[in-house]
Design a protein around this nucleic acid. Structure first.
Lengths: 316, 316
DNA sequence: CATATTTATATAAGTACTTATGTAAATTTA
DNA sequence: TAAATTTACATAAGTACTTATATAAATATG
């Protein structure tokens, strides 16, 4: 059936190519899954740029042993994606010095945990004794056929990110993130009402100063999610609201981590009841709320949000 | 220096690609060296076509697991090179049945010993114990850096071909080969004189029937070289002439094998002296003649060939 | 110091694939 | 048995490289 395997060492070149292409394609799926605009073939280049502080085309050439046009073209790609900045050398005007851009640094923090997962998973697949290269490739291809590399890497990356996420309290430095994360979310699922705009742009005034709390999920110093607890009508009760997770970090259960943090916070601070106003449209979210013990209760007539058609509570 | 090696399992995809590309390029050099119009990437396809008797595009797809356009394009390439014949299926007019052409079969006999050498050499490089795929690749790349794969394969293929070549006597079936091999050679180095044309097209009349001998070097049933012994003036003496080797088999020392055969033949048949008329232009040939014991003697005024400017003899 | 050579990067075109789509023949289904 | 679907192959365009060549700046050479 699989002719290449039958050709043994003679077909080694084609074999290596096939395995390589399979791996590259699977890793592309991983990047796609986490909404990271990156290509596997750019990895060696990107790693060099991020390791050294300012590097030139020809230095990369020497490290990677690709041809010069290959490097130039890959750099063009990175530039198009906005991941690098090119600045021409003051002393030698032929040279262009390459740095990661701000976006590039940001992307790097997204890539790092994924790279760790790739390394770990591929080690699991390939750290094995064998008596010839072909034998090794046979075993590897068998394993790859059993279960897709991408799914396993994705699973690993998710738990890795989950572990690396920590929760921090409100700080004025983070207020822009609070706005951005929530507005992004609102724009995707509903639209931004004038009242949202007002509250989100002045969280200190509308939430903190009224006795509320805002928490942020942080991954490698990057803010990737947020949630707020706002005191409401009945004394002691809080509304759990303004929860949002960055699009390229969804799927890492960061929302659930924020939720758990709020519940723990409520227990510690003797908050008797948490309330959530939501929309039935958000099935996945409702599912999570129930999972954490929230139960549905009737929505009052004068619900604070137009988009709200469900109210839930958790007796802490 | 070599960044990819430093990345370990994380750079495995790029690593595999690099090794694959290196091997393909080296194997291309081997084909080029033997003047075989063939590309390494065509190997899996070609092997399938030559193994099965009549195969279709989609059957190849299933065996190789490339995409259909990849197969179609590779088949077009083989067709352009004249290595395959396409014939449309009588029962299912959508199908095209693929066979090796006559030229394709001929090329296959040239390829087979090379494939054997590739298999052997790559086995030598890769049949080795190691505890991970990366370790295998590190060792392989170290070895590849030490000495080029292509040269080793070429050396192995040469001795392989030499061993597989046998010498056979004249047969009328081979007279066309006698003509083709010699004319090709003459056209390359000199030009075909009318007398050459006459003798080469009627070897039986001009050589065999005059008490001469013609020998052929045969590789896998394919005639790849020839030489003649013609009786000349002094009784018992023979001229060693009409030696030619197929262009894509040069470098295998087939000429030397023919030479040795002639000398052995002379000894066995009590031929006292062999004469060679040649041209100083053919330095390599002269070198070989000396190596086999021929010594230079004065050229007579009425030399039989215009191109002749050196005469050599071997006292058997 | 002008000229030749080398170095750093860019551009162009070719290659061996890919994905997306087209077309014609065969097969299934209504 | 006509219409819909599937199969077999072809064509087009894109991609990540390659080789070949161009261009401009820096350096070596006479």
């Amino acid at each position: 059936m699989d002719a290449l395997i039958g050709y043994g060492e003679l077909g080694l070149g084609s074999r290596l190519k096939r395995v390589s292409e399979y791996m590259m394609k699977e890793i592309q799926l991983v990047y796609n899954h986490f909404n990271i605009d990156f290509d596997p073939y750019l990895f060696p280049l990107y790693k060099i740029i991020s390791n050294k502080n300012g590097v030139t085309n020809s230095e990369i050439q020497n490290s990677l042993k690709y041809t010069q046009p290959a490097i130039t073209q890959a750099l063009n790609k990175l530039n198009k994606k906005g991941l690098i900045d090119l600045e021409s050398d003051k002393l030698d005007k032929r040279k262009k010095i390459i740095h990661l851009s701000t976006k590039g640094e940001k992307t790097l923090t997204l890539l790092k945990p994924i790279w760790n997962s790739i390394d770990k998973v591929i080690k699991e697949y390939t750290l094995e004794h064998s008596s010839s290269l072909i034998e090794h490739l046979n075993r590897l291809e068998n394993k790859l056929n059993e279960k897709s590399l991408s799914n396993i890497i994705i699973e690993d990356a998710k738990t890795r990110v989950r572990q690396e996420v920590d929760i921090v309290s409100f700080d004025n430095d983070y207020s822009q993130h609070f706005y951005d994360l929530n507005v992004e979310w609102l724009k995707t699922y509903f639209y931004v009402e004038p009242y949202d705009e007002e509250v989100l742009s002045k969280p200190e005034k509308y939430i903190i100063n009224k006795g509320g709390h805002i928490f942020f999920a942080r991954l490698n110093k990057q803010i990737v999610g947020t949630v707020a607890l706002m005191p409401i009508g009945n004394v002691g009760e809080f509304e759990l609201t303004k929860m949002a997770v960055a699009p390229n970090q969804r799927g890492h259960k960061i929302g659930q981590k924020l939720m758990q943090y709020c519940i723990d916070f409520a227990k510690k601070n003797n908050i008797p009841k948490l309330i959530i106003y939501s929309s039935r449209k958000l099935e996945n979210a409702i599912y999570i709320y129930r999972k954490y013990g929230f139960i549905e209760i009737p929505v009052e007539a004068n619900c604070p949000y137009k988009r709200c058609d469900i109210k839930m509570e958790l007796v802490v």
